[in-house]
Design a protein around this nucleic acid. Sequence first.
DNA 1: AGCTGTACCTGCAGGC
DNA 2: TGCCTGCAGGTACAGC
Length: 278
Amino acid sequence: MPELPEVETVKQTLIPLVVGKRISECQVLYPRVLPKNHVNEFTADMINRKIITICRRGKYLLFLLDSKLLLVIHLRMTGQLVFYPEKSAPLAKHTSAVFTFYDGGELRFVDQRKFGTIYLMPDSQLHIISGLYTLGPEPLSKEFSSEILTKIVKSGRSIKSILLDQKKIAGLGNIYTDEVLYRARIHPKRPGSSLETAEISALYRSIVTVLQEAIAAKGTTIKDYRTGDGDRGNFQNKLQVYGKSGEACPTCNTLIQKTKISGRSSHFCPNCQRWDKS
DNA sequence: AGCTGTACCTGCAGGC
DNA sequence: TGCCTGCAGGTACAGC
């Protein structure tokens, strides 16, 4: 589920709902959601904390608390982080953790596949979370540029596996890499180092515009993803290749193909995204 | 360096 | 209806 646009949307929708609120209760129903913390210590450290703000880095959410500790959450495949104004609503089946506020609302972490993770630590310890520590540049930051992307793609690996590599660039996942490469008209198996300057420029523009459009649409809901207020996203209606194998390419009507790259299913138009430039 | 397979989990769709 | 297989938005790790 959640790639950069979904995580960004969760952040944006949760900020008006939970920032400034103080936690009265904390329940961990699935202890393995905490790979680096003990349940009892975690719970004790969360109670009476106020949420100061929420940030995003790659696919990680960072909750700044009014203590020296940072709450870090990764939704992985099926994690949902949803605010419930009423404490009384029954807990969903795969609820991993619940944070209750003094005003009666609750922030719930529901995660069907249980891959999602929660960490609590001072920022001096964030290097413990290796996936966070080694993240590449934020594609929507001012620092990201066509020049930086040129260095990133300089590798014999397939361009799709490069874009999926969070150490190279933060936030892209299986849906958006396919959409980005389609828009840039680049075959997903092309070696990164084979891309020409014009193609890298097109790739840069398509990364930025696809992510911006997906955020504007509040993300892609295939199945599990929900915004912080429990809504579905809308970008699934704008996907052009992801999950469309066997359907007609919106540009040229050729059938979209599906193949395996880096162990992930990959969708592309064999006519629009050619090895050789036409 | 970079690939593959495996693991972590649950649920669902499709084939028989 | 039931059983089985494969697959799903992510990432870490072992082994080649």
